[in-house]
Design a protein around this nucleic acid. Structure first.
Lengths: 225, 225
DNA sequence: ACTAAAACATGACAAATATCATATCAAAAT
DNA sequence: ATTTTGATATGATATTTGTCATGTTTTAGT
């Protein structure tokens, strides 16, 4: 758990193009930080002097809208970096990051990132690719938000979570969100999210056990209109 | 108009970090291409083997949603590049680009871009910064789409166009969009966009002359709820 | 200038979604 | 174990937005 070069995360993350020597030089990475469920890693407007690499756990990236409601923009998992966008733009962070379960992250100082961006073109390229991928995703979300119904968006959110984060040993979705969080992913009122989930239950598309959700009919969910 | 090194656009674009020699090597850039209003530069799903640098004119980047409606994701102007995201991700283009007025663009082949990404870290950094900026914008649009009313979104679209693209000599917005395009920016039905614009007119927030729109009360538009 | 086509406009109504109220349930605290 | 709090659930209703119909105006083509 101690050295970056040994970290299993390395091969999945944008850091994969860093050499052993480069990783060793990332001194701040030697110690990982544990973050409890519900804790805030950083908040909209904060200034970061480095990025976080997620070793374990899941967090949400969200933004507070003028109407006082939070909008979840992205879910971040093992292997992802947090705060790169802000670091590269050299501006305050645009989104808040809050842990959805217990997390382990390690901090990589700004200077290390910029040094590698300057000297390792493979690393720059990986960063660019990651950013390009995020941009495509974000554009697609814009289209979905603008053009699809709440029901469709919620169905797609469930499918997305199913495909990206998998299931636990009992077949429930690995990512457990409150109804309020689902509303905040989909961009609707909490009551609406609850109603739609109830409807999905009635139609046997999903089943629930407390906060846990199991997808019973993936194909059915895909057909939701 | 012929050589990249002389092009005024150069200093505004992501290409500003390329040296004179690097620009000279961009052979394909020697000839610029003229695109008429309404013409398509590329379509969703196309494979690009280079990027376009916009020398003049404005175009829309849009995506077709499953419901058959187009969603405009971004407006692109002088100095911007088109197709970088797709090129970097090495995948088909995610958005269609259609000229909103007569345009002049020049084409830069893929190999040139990648060569420079590999060898010129300032260029890579500029690309990264541009992408980071686009990502922030896109995330913000997601939040607006999800949390704001059609009226608010349309008011903000007008303000955005006012601030980003300016006015012509008679004080009308420089970018002229059809009502359908406004609907497509805001993510609503054409009739709804028309209705809201009519309402803005009645409230003396804007005035119109044919397709042209003049903002009469910018502060009032900002206060729209 | 005339015609056809497209864009704009508006009413009437339907559907989707938000809001408010209230009830139930589950988790946490004492 | 009991209380308290927060999350989930659902009904009733208001508001927003979409759809369809239809008329008018503008634009483009001959």
């Amino acid at each position: 758990m101690s050295k970056c070069e040994q970290c299993i995360i390395r091969e999945f993350s944008s850091l994969k193009s860093l050499s052993k020597e480069e990783l060793l030089s990332i001194s701040g990475c030697k110690t990982s930080k544990f973050i409890k469920k519900g804790e805030t890693i950083f908040e909209e407007g904060d200034t970061l002097n480095g990025v976080y690499c997620v070793k374990d756990g899941i967090c949400k990236l969200s933004k507070l809208s003028a109407n006082g409601k939070d909008q979840i923009v992205k879910l971040v998992v093992k292997g992802d970096l947090l705060g790169q966008r802000s670091l590269i733009s050299d501006e305050a962070v645009n989104l808040s990051a809050v842990a959805l379960n217990n997390m382990e992250v390690c901090f990589i100082p700004k200077a290390e990132i910029f040094g590698n961006l300057k000297n390792n073109s493979d690393f720059s390229m990986d960063m660019l690719k990651q950013m390009a991928h995020d941009l495509k995703e974000s554009d697609n979300v814009v289209v979905n938000m603008a053009q699809k119904s709440v029901k469709q968006r919620l169905a797609e959110a469930l499918i997305y979570i199913h495909n990206s984060f998998g299931l636990n040993n009992q077949g429930f979705l690995n990512v457990v969100l409150s109804r309020e969080d689902y509303a905040s992913v989909v961009g609707t009122a909490t009551e609406s999210a609850i109603r739609v989930l109830s409807q999905f239950k009635k139609e046997n598309l999903i089943s629930t056990s407390g906060k846990q959700i199991k997808i019973e009919d993936l194909e059915g969910l895909k057909r939701v209109e």
